[in-house]
Amino acid sequence: MRIRNVHERVVDAGAEDIAPLLATMGQPDDVLYPPLWEPMRLDGPLAVGASGTHGTISAYEPGRLVEFTFPDGLGITGTHTFTVTTLGPGRSAVRHEVDADAGPAAWLAWKTLIEPSHDAVLEQVLDRLQAAVDAPPARPTALSAYARLLRWFERPRARAVEQPQAGLIVGALPRVDDSDVFVIERRRETPADPDLWAQAIFTDLPPWGGALMGIRERLVGLVGIDRGSPDTFAVIERGEDEVLLGADAGHLDFRTAVRCEPTRIVLSGAVQLHDRRGRAYYALIRHLHPLIVRAMFNRAAYRLARKGVPAPAVHVAA
């Protein structure tokens, strides 16, 4: 079954201005691929033979042509290609075309899952290309509700990892009774400032998390456990790429560290329990704690990525 899909935009820029933007495709500094979607990745610079999430480059002419062959295993055979055609001084047509064949199951997957997100991504890529040459579209692409739903499934998600704690959290407490480490992918255009991440994680709870914290505040005082205070997540120490927060209370002390790495954000936690109240309290919340941490971490990553849209990291004068 045949698949044909075309997106084209006339851009007020010459091929020489568009070339360096196309050259960032699939790279860590990709300025065209919209950051709220699962990133496009290549295993090296743009060149014939480079391979990644969107296939293998089978033809490449800098600033003129980038042709990908679909990866194996999709049930789709063919190519998807960017071309740049000069229309006149400082004016070009940028076109992306899918030309492929698919079996019935792959064709159905293309129509229901791949094509709606593909169309949304390509239109946003062209928006960002225009913005990067200082000629942004009059109306940026508005995603359909279905495309937004598909994008939601592609958002970065926090996960617990089994690895030794490192950085400022090591030695932050005299004794550690429990600890955990969570990581989340750092998408392009999200900050490398751990203070911004800490603020986003701990001051903007999901609604259901905020409700649970409100219930917690009402109940703990009844059993003599300290209620939260404005300095619950006070900054204790800062490093070049990390910030340590925490507080001491009668029933337990806790520390949490946010560390920014090139491709991920690491959130580490440690707790020291003091007495029977602390142990009983922690026994009640320890299984709920990972759910809340993941939800806070996911929300922070999504919101920080949104703040980076739509401005590309590189601007090229037309």
Results as ranks from 00 to 15, higher is better:
4 R>E: 09
10 V>H: 14
12 D>S: 14
13 A>N: 07
13 A>K: 03
14 G>E: 13
15 A>E: 15
18 I>K: 03
18 I>R: 01
19 A>V: 04
21 L>C: 09
22 L>W: 02
24 T>Q: 01
24 T>W: 00
25 M>F: 15
30 D>C: 06
31 V>K: 00
33 Y>L: 05
35 P>K: 02
36 L>D: 11
37 W>D: 08
37 W>Q: 00
38 E>C: 00
39 P>R: 06
40 M>T: 15
41 R>E: 09
44 G>D: 08
52 G>F: 05
55 G>W: 00
55 G>R: 01
58 S>N: 00
60 Y>G: 05
62 P>A: 01
63 G>I: 00
68 F>W: 11
69 T>K: 01
70 F>P: 01
71 P>K: 09
73 G>I: 09
76 I>L: 05
77 T>L: 05
79 T>K: 04
79 T>S: 10
80 H>M: 02
80 H>I: 02
82 F>D: 01
84 V>C: 02
87 L>C: 07
89 P>A: 15
90 G>N: 02
93 A>T: 13
96 H>P: 05
97 E>R: 11
97 E>L: 07
107 W>S: 09
114 I>R: 01
116 P>K: 04
125 V>C: 07
125 V>K: 03
125 V>M: 14
129 L>Y: 11
138 A>P: 03
142 A>K: 07
145 A>C: 03
149 L>M: 12
153 F>E: 13
156 P>N: 12
160 A>C: 05
162 E>I: 03
165 Q>V: 10
167 G>N: 12
170 V>I: 08
171 G>N: 08
174 P>N: 13
176 V>T: 08
177 D>L: 00
179 S>P: 01
183 V>P: 04
189 E>Y: 13
192 A>S: 14
193 D>P: 03
196 L>D: 14
197 W>R: 04
200 A>D: 06
200 A>Y: 07
204 D>A: 15
206 P>G: 07
207 P>F: 14
209 G>E: 10
209 G>M: 09
216 R>S: 05
218 R>H: 08
220 V>M: 09
226 D>V: 06
226 D>E: 15
227 R>K: 09
228 G>H: 05
228 G>V: 05
228 G>K: 08
231 D>K: 02
233 F>T: 11
235 V>R: 10
240 E>L: 06
241 D>I: 01
241 D>V: 10
242 E>R: 15
249 A>F: 04
249 A>I: 01
250 G>T: 13
250 G>D: 13
252 L>K: 04
253 D>A: 14
257 A>I: 08
257 A>L: 12
262 P>R: 12
272 Q>R: 13
272 Q>H: 11
274 H>I: 10
278 G>H: 07
281 Y>P: 08
286 R>V: 14
299 R>Q: 13
302 Y>R: 12
303 R>F: 11
303 R>T: 12
305 A>E: 07
311 A>F: 01
314 V>M: 13
315 H>K: 01
318 A>C: 11
